[in-house]
Each structure stands twice: as C-alpha cells, then as structure tokens.
Design a protein around this nucleic acid. Structure first.
Lengths: 353, 353
DNA sequence: TTGAAAGCGCTACCAC
DNA sequence: GTGGTAGCGCTTTCAA
C-alpha cells in the first residue's frame, strides 16, 4: 500500500493524506482522524527512499568503525556505544548504517558516504592522536561527532568522550594510598588517543607523589588477553616486580590475573589489579581492587549522548560544534563514590523539546 | 555533482551516461571511456536514494540484533559475525543497516522494515527454540537468513549455524577420556537454540559412556562472569563436586576460574575448565584444557557465509532456502585436529560467478 | 549507438 | 482545508 493507493481509497489527494500523516496543522481534525485510521488499517508505511529523495534527508546515521587488521575484530565497547546511540535513533525515527573499515583505509571512504547520500550524519570512532579524518570531514560539510578526541587537532569539532585521564589518575592515586609504589600500567596502543590520556593520568598521579615512573612497568599494545599475560609475566620476573597492575581493558586484565596466579601470587594480598569492568562487583573487597571506568552503562550513555548531539546538529545546522566529556563511574575498593567533577566545561546544550 | 550535470558537461544524455557507468553493452567504447574519465575527475557518486527509488532495490541489508533487556548489552559475537558479513557487503556494494531491538519486542518490527523498503534482505540473530519470527518473515516475502536454527520449526528456511552439538559432545567426550566423571555444564539460556544444542551434545557424550547426568552439575543463565562464579562456587561446595567444567562463554569461564581459585584448587591439577575462546592458546597444556568452538574466526566465517547466501537469494529469487552448518574449530588439549565432518549435509550452493 | 520522456513514491509549492 | 503539479536523481522503455 502506497500513498497514492491510500489517497485514492480515502477519496483524498496525496497531498492531504501526506499532510495528515506528517502532522501538518492545516488538516481538518476529522480528516486527519480518517486518514490515520486508514493508514493503521492498511498498515501503511511510507517508503523511506522516496521520502528521502523528496525531502533530501535520508533519516539515517552512519557509524564508521575501524577494524584492526591485526586483530581482525571490532572492539567490544562498540556494542555498548551503539546500543546507546540506537535508543536515540529509534525515538527520532532514524536508522543506523554501519560501515566497518580497515584501519587507515578510511580516507576516501567519507567522501563516498556523503555523495551516496544515504546518511545525514556520521559518528566516527577511535580517533588517533592526530587524526586526519577530522579535517577531511570538516571539509565535507556532513555533520559528524567523534567518539573520543584527537589531542593534536586544534580545530574545533564535535566530540563525546570519557574522561580517561581523570579515571586513570584517580585509580593510580588510590593504589598509591594503599601503599603501592611499584605500579604497572598495561595500556592500549598509545597512538590511540584514549590510551595516551590514560597513560597521562597514570603518570600525573605518580608525579603528584614524587614517584619516578619506571619504563619497565609500562607496556602498551592491542588489548588482548595475551598482552596482559605476557606483560604481567615479564614484569613479575623482574628483580623488583610491581605490586599492583593497572590495566586498560577487561580482556587484558584476564591475562594479567592468570599470570599472577601462575606466579603463585594471591590477588589482593600480594598484588592488586585494577581494571575497568562491569562484572567484578561480586568480588570480596580486599581480594581485588576493581576500578570501574568505562562501565558498560557509561559507554552506553556516551553513545546515547553522541547520537543526541548529532541529531541536534542535523536539526539545527548552525548550532556549532558540541562537546561532552563524561565522567567514568568509579568504584575504588569497596566504596562507590560519586563521580568527580569534570575538568572541562561541557558546552552541550540540550535538544529543544 | 549529479547525473544531470555530468551528462550536460559531457554533451551527452543522462541515459547514455547512466548506461556507460552501469556497464551496459550498447555504449560505444570511446564514449564509455570519456564518461568514466569524467566521472572519476568530478568524483561522481550516484545518489543511493534516487537509484534505489528507480530500481526498486535499496542495496542494503538489515541486521536485526536482539538486546537482552536484563543485560542491556549486545553479545560480543555479533561484532565478529558482522565483520564477516561486512566483507561480503563491501564487495557487492551493499550497505549494512543495523537495528537493535529489545528481546521479544520484535514482532511488528519486521513488517515496518519491509514496508519502509530500505533493505533488500534481513539477517536474523539469536533464534529461540520455537521462534515465531520465522513464520512471520516467510510471510513477508523479504529474503532472510537466520544466524542459528530454531529446532522446533519444521518449515524450511535459510540459516547458517555452528555445529554446537558436535562441539560440546566432543569436548565432553574428551574430558571423559581424561578420566573425569563429574563434569559440570555452565550453559547459556536454554530457550536459546544454540544453548539447547550444546546441552544436547553434552548429554549425548555422557550417555555414550553410560554416565548419568546430575542436575546439580547443570546450570544455565545469561552468560555473565557472575553466572560462572556463582555456579562454580555452589558446585564446588557439593559433597561430590565436579572435577571439570564445560562453559558456554569465555566470560562465564572467567567467573568459573575465579571460583576455583577461591576454593584453593588448582586448574589443570584439581579441576579442568573447558570453554571456547580464541585467546587461550598461550596456555601451557595440562594446566588447563581449552576447547575452541566458536572462535572469532569461525564466527566471522559464519557472518561471511550468511551474507553471501542472502545476496545470492536476492540475486536469484527462486534459489530456495539455503543452509550451512559450520564446524567449529576444535583444539582439545594441545592437539589441533581437523574439524570433524558435518553431521548434516549442507546444501549450500556457491554463488554463480 | 544515442536520446526523449515516463516513471519510482513522496514532499512542498502554489492555487483555489 | 484541500488539491494540482513540479520536482528529488536515477533507471528504463521506446523511438530514432
């Protein structure tokens, strides 16, 4: 059933039916009711392509996700992020178009996406320190929001990010409070912006207590279980091994924990491990020290926020770049405290309702 | 730059330019070359909406992914599956439209998807034992492929699935060979088809050795670390505890391993744990017994296969339902053997090239 | 081998 | 309040 048929059935013009269905005010109430009833009866759903052609909007948002050729996998946080974004899209009647692209091969992709015209905006994931995509996208004139920041980019652009620096400095400070001095960091790849920030937070907390960072206790790589295992094993073999680990991923932490176990050490007594992870809440305090930074729900919230921002930018073309820095939920030891205040103002404006 | 402008620039009709660009044979070679050169020069990309309207095909595929309201998350395997599918789409020029839908609320969704007309086919994830969506989709006349099977459905439909039953029976048999008699199963929710099959495989292997299954050693639930931890803790408290665990998810296995550690037992000596997971290959043999069932690469292959099948079904409307049963990569102990032969014939036909 | 013109299903402008 | 009509950018007859 299309508009023409529906209109004919109702003895009305397509114009009127279209107006009734799209909430235009000039339609008589009884007419609108009749139209709506018929639409429901015949299960009428407007054709999205035709609507898009006519309006110039596609009512869908593109998410571009880089896949690491090495790992050949997508980072599991995207699942949560997209879940959050999806909520916003459903409410606003948007679709989500997913494009996976191999790391680094994305340069020419964006132009095609714009010219194809089947998305009204883009969400860009996993920015690197100085990410060339941002300049590219700014030129294209297609609204976009970056999930994460690119530290070396001076231009203003829209982003949503977790406060990685804060989370990791707080976690490090907490370990220092507990008496640790030899604290290991098993980080993600440090040309990724978030990993750089995490390291920065770690270093700043050490510096605050005049602890000299030891390169032998800092490791970075693809966030796999293997990385965690190898890093921890090597470090525990040192003459002066770490007494605590700070890891950048739940998966990495698994490897770390296993290496600790293999070394005959006991978690919480001999060694502390801090990671971010949703599911450690059942642990006894003291046995391990979980830090929740980017919990699943935090990531979901970030996705939601990014989507809201992008939809606002699409609705209000000149609302300018928007930013939103989200504080990670932190649980240090057994104390669930409120998140610390953001260290950057977030000029995020609520969508007009 | 659109077709009209390009044609005007070339002093040709839109018709000819369109034909040249779409590989129609009746275009003179020199003309085609000229057109292609100009298209490249001006970075011409046809508008997908307009093309879709004109051709009746949207050149995109919908993936419908259920999210569990309880967990509020997507299963990480989807990332791998979609990565595989995405390869096929890129090659064929298709886009991927992702729709997340809350478990059970999907009944009416599919009709809308079809009527909106922005996908040419659908891939359905996570079927339950008797899944009403299959009948629904068959009625809609939109090509679809199910990732997984629905055991209680007799109708013929297209699917791609891992051989869960086989993988779990093999793993169980392997544990029995090692001398285990008290083997625990920590499974996913058993109204999910894959979980049911896994349990079936487990039970059949026990039966083959005349071991009576003990309900106290069988647990099912959302595949979380918490489930693994609680299940294992409870079971290890039994008068007659298990000496081996078979788990249905890497995440669950983490909880199991932790409970074992808390109980003061040593993995590989006191207890064996089998799970499926890509990243355990670095473990020393004997310390643990990894089983790789749905490895990341297996899941990716399944995604690829499902996408290929769907594209074929779209190209060849009456090629009938296609099926593909994929054997999981198995690594039992330290032996990496070839996958066993499938126990179902797979009438998957290769795409004509 | 090329071109003119009629749609695809919808919105939006202008007239009544 | 309602309807006629001209596109949106492309493909696809039909004619030349």
């Amino acid at each position: 059933m299309n508009l023409k048929e529906l209109a004919h059935h109702l003895n009305l013009s397509q114009t009127t039916v279209s107006r009734a269905l799209n909430g235009y005010p000039e339609v008589k109430k009884t007419t609108r009711l009749r139209v709506e009833a018929a639409a429901r009866e015949f299960n009428y759903t407007p054709n999205a392509r035709a609507k898009g052609l006519a309006t110039g909007r596609s009512m869908s948002i593109g998410h571009v996700i880089p896949t690491s050729a090495k790992r050949e996998m997508v980072n599991p946080v995207f699942g949560d992020f997209i879940t959050g974004a999806s909520e916003a899209y459903v409410q606003a009647g948007y679709d989500l178009v997913l494009t996976l692209v191999e790391d680094g091969k994305e340069e020419r992709l964006y132009r095609n996406i714009r010219d194809k015209g089947n998305v009204d905006g883009i969400i860009v994931h996993s920015p690197r320190m100085q990410d060339s995509r941002i300049a590219l996208l700014s030129d294209l004139g297609l609204p976009f929001v970056v999930h994460g920041r690119a530290s070396d980019i001076t231009a203003d652009y829209s982003w949503v990010d977790m406060n990685s620096r804060r989370a990791f400095s707080r976690a490090t400070a907490f370990l220092i409070e507990l008496g640790h001095r030899r604290i290991a960091l098993v980080n993600g790849l440090e040309f990724m912006d978030f990993a750089f920030r995490r390291r920065d937070g770690y270093l700043s907390a050490l510096a605050a207590q005049a602890i000299t960072p030891d390169p032998a206790l800092m490791r970075a790589g693809e966030m796999t279980e293997l990385l965690g295992h190898q890093s921890a094993r090597d470090m525990l073999d040192l003459a002066d091994p770490p007494t605590a680990f700070l890891t950048s991923s739940m998966v990495t932490a698994i490897g770390v924990r296993r290496a600790i176990q293999e070394a005959g050490l006991e978690m919480g007594r001999d060694v502390s491990v801090i990671t971010h992870d949703d599911e450690l809440s059942y642990l006894k305090n003291g046995q391990d020290v979980p830090l929740f930074t980017a919990t699943r729900s935090s990531v979901r919230a970030a996705g939601r926020r990014a989507a809201d921002m992008l939809l606002q930018m699409i609705a209000d073309k000149d609302c300018g770049p928007l930013h939103s820095l989200l504080e990670a939920e932190l649980i240090l030891g057994n104390s669930t405290g409120p998140a610390p205040a953001a260290d950057i103002k977030t000029p995020y404006r609520q969508e007009r309702t």
